[in-house]
Simulated scan of single mutants.
Amino acid sequence: MVATRELADELPMLEVEAAKARAAALLLAFRHGNQLSFDAQLERLFAEHAEREVATLLVWIAAEAVRKAYVPEAGDRVLRALARRAPADTTGVLLDEDGACPATLIEAVHAGDVAGVRALVAATPDTTYLVGGLLQAVAMMLPLLPDGECDEITAELRRRHGGRGVQVPEARRR
């Protein structure tokens, strides 16, 4: 049996767990390309004790390690488990479908609340559920469009994107 003792300049275990949770939240934002959330988390760290270059490098290294060690779904489960271990009130990050509400996003967009949209996106490092919910909402709204509107919208999208994309056979469009 090996005996360990805490050194004078070592972080207490509670702070270590909080630091791991903050790192996991940063890593989730980094993995999902959510720059707003990554920057918001990083600003919180700056206010406490970190330097941008070091934090960015560590997140990059951690992202590479997770990418190589886990399939994507398992990597996300590991990161969420780390973030959930945080003591109360150490992270304000929405981590899953319970926190990322597409209805709130749609309401903010409809109201022209740019700050509200930014805040929701910044607080949601894993935007998978948010974007999925938004896609579901768009699909629900399409039948409500007047005849011809959907065709005009898709034609405009094809013009903007140079006609790229997979063509869906007519029978599957309905």
Rank of each mutant, 00 (worst) to 15 (best):
A19I: 02
K20M: 04
A21N: 03
A21F: 00
A23R: 10
A24P: 10
A25W: 02
L26E: 01
L27Y: 01
L28G: 11
F30G: 06
R31S: 15
R31Y: 04
R31Q: 15
H32P: 10
N34A: 13
N34S: 14
Q35T: 14
L36F: 14
L36D: 14
L36Q: 15
S37R: 12
S37F: 13
F38S: 05
F38G: 06
F38A: 07
A40F: 11
A40E: 06
Q41A: 15
Q41S: 14
L42F: 05
L42T: 04
E43F: 03
R44Q: 01
L45M: 10
L45G: 12
F46E: 00
F46W: 06
F46A: 00
E48Y: 06
E48N: 09
E48L: 10
H49E: 08
H49V: 08
E51T: 02
R52S: 08
E53F: 05
V54E: 10
V54A: 12
V54W: 07
A55N: 04
A55S: 13
T56A: 07
L57Y: 08
L57I: 07
L58C: 09
V59A: 05
V59N: 01
V59I: 11
W60N: 06
W60K: 06
I61F: 07
I61K: 08
I61R: 09
A62F: 07
A62T: 03
A62W: 03
A63D: 13
A63H: 06
E64C: 11
E64Y: 13
E64D: 11
E64V: 11
A65D: 06
A65V: 00
A65R: 04
V66C: 00
V66W: 00
R67M: 01
R67K: 14
K68E: 14
K68H: 12
A69N: 12
A69W: 02
Y70E: 08
P72K: 08
E73F: 14
E73L: 13
A74W: 10
A74I: 13
G75K: 00
R77W: 09
R77K: 12
V78M: 12
V78T: 09
L79N: 04
L79D: 01
L79W: 10
L79Q: 04
L79K: 05
R80L: 13
A81Q: 10
A81M: 09
L82T: 04
L82F: 06
A83F: 07
R85I: 05
R85D: 12
